[in-house]
Design a protein around this nucleic acid. Structure first.
Lengths: 96, 96
DNA sequence: CAGCATCCTTCGGGATACTG
DNA sequence: CAGTATCCCGAAGGATGCTG
C-alpha cells in the first residue's frame, strides 16, 4: 500500500501503462501536477522498483520513464479494485 | 485508495476479518496503536461504510466492531495484493 | 471500558525561483 | 528539457490527561 500512496502515483502508473513517456510528456499529460511533485513521485516509484528511468546524455537532455514488469503485474490488483468500485458505485476519478 | 490510506486501516480490517471485536480487543491486538488513533481510524472506516459500530448501552460500556459486506467484498483485492507481493518477494508486515 | 480534548511533531504536498 | 533548492502550509499521526 505504501508503495502506491501518493497523490499522483496511480495516475502516473496509468499513463505509463500506455507506453514510455518523457518527463515533459508526463507533466503535460497530468493536469495540475507541478515539476516538483512529478519528480518526487517518480523518484519514489523508481525507488520501489515500479518505474525505470532512462537518461539519454544528449543536448537538450532527454529522460524516459517506463513501467517495470513488476508494475505491470499490478494489473490484476487494479482490476479487482475496479470490480469492487463498480459493484459499490464508488466514483473513481479515472484519467481519460 | 483514499478509503484505505491510513497507517492502521489495513491491519484493523484484517483483524475484523476474523470476526467481531470490541474496542479494547482491537487495541490490545494491534501493538503500537494508541487509543486516539484507533478511534479516528475506526471512525474513518465507519464513515466510508467499511465497518459497523454497535453500542451496547451497558455498564461498563461495550462497543463492538464488525466488517460490513462492502468491506468483505474487498477480499479479492487484498488477495491479488498478496499474490503480487508473493511473486515480487515484498515483505508484508502481516498480522498473525 | 471506550472514548474525547488538547497540544505537539512530522510528513506529504505545493509555490516559486534557479540551473546544467 | 529536466530537473534542484527553498520556503511554506495543512493534514496525518502521536503523547498525555480527563470522563460518562
Amino acid at each position: 500500500m505504501r508503495m502506491l500512496t501518493g497523490k499522483w502515483k496511480a495516475e502516473i502508473l496509468w499513463r505509463l501503462g500506455h507506453g514510455t513517456m518523457r518527463f515533459g510528456e508526463l507533466r503535460r499529460a497530468i493536469p495540475g501536477i507541478t515539476q516538483h511533485m512529478l519528480t518526487t513521485q517518480l523518484r519514489d516509484l523508481e525507488a520501489h522498483g515500479l518505474v525505470r528511468r532512462t537518461i539519454y546524455p544528449e543536448v537538450p537532455p532527454r529522460v524516459e520513464y517506463e513501467l517495470t514488469p513488476s508494475a505491470r503485474d499490478l494489473g490484476p490488483v487494479f482490476n479487482e479494485i475496479r470490480i469492487w468500485s463498480d459493484k459499490h458505485a464508488v466514483a473513481l476519478s479515472r484519467p481519460t
